[in-house]
Write a protein that binds this DNA or RNA. Structure first.
Length: 155
DNA sequence: GCCAACGTTGGC
DNA sequence: GCCAACGTTGGC
């Protein structure tokens, strides 16, 4: 079991949108960074858990938990000329961008970025590293345990 | 809207 | 392969 953090702009897809979605599943479309893609395509495994993080919004922070629930498959938005995520350099016979489906697990209170920063236990968390811009990144087991137990109040 | 930090592109 | 220019991310 591995743990992840996945950023989404809540104006695009929020934790509430995921909870309300058909089957409570959604395709994690729109990733256009190679490192984030590699984590999603190559390193994730079905059953891995991830923090659902709200970014580029009034209250950035962790909003809940989701579960990786599909094998990787091509992100269709890269082939649609009218889509904002269209990539003219990607070809259907050799897709550049891959995604997975995630399943809603739980919503939590919003745990603000500033609160994460204030926790000494999370000093080495990748999310908090200077200049970090990755939209998908691993979370260590100890960071996961601290956040779920101490900040979310889960068992 | 600002801007620091980073990733990508493309000429050489 | 270098690196300057440019584009993007994302908190504030």
């Amino acid at each position: 079991m591995q743990y992840w953090l996945m950023k989404s702009e809540p104006e695009e897809v929020s934790i509430d949108d995921l909870e309300a979605a058909l089957s409570q599943r959604a395709a994690w479309f729109g990733v256009r960074n190679y490192q984030a893609r590699n984590f999603m395509r190559d390193a994730m495994k079905v059953g891995d858990l991830a923090f659902f993080y709200h970014s580029s919004c009034a209250e950035p922070g962790i909003a809940g938990i989701c579960e990786v629930c599909s094998e990787p498959y091509p992100d269709e938005t890269q082939f649609s000329t009218v889509n904002p995520y269209f990539d003219p350099k990607s070809k259907p016979d050799n897709p550049r961008w891959w995604l997975r489906d995630v399943r809603f697990v739980s919503k939590s209170r919003l745990i603000p970025l500033a609160q994460l920063r204030a926790c000494p236990e999370l000093a080495n968390m990748r999310l908090l590293a200077r200049g970090n811009r990755l939209s998908i990144m691993p979370v260590s087991e100890s960071e996961w345990a601290f956040i779920t137990k101490e900040l979310m109040g889960l068992q």
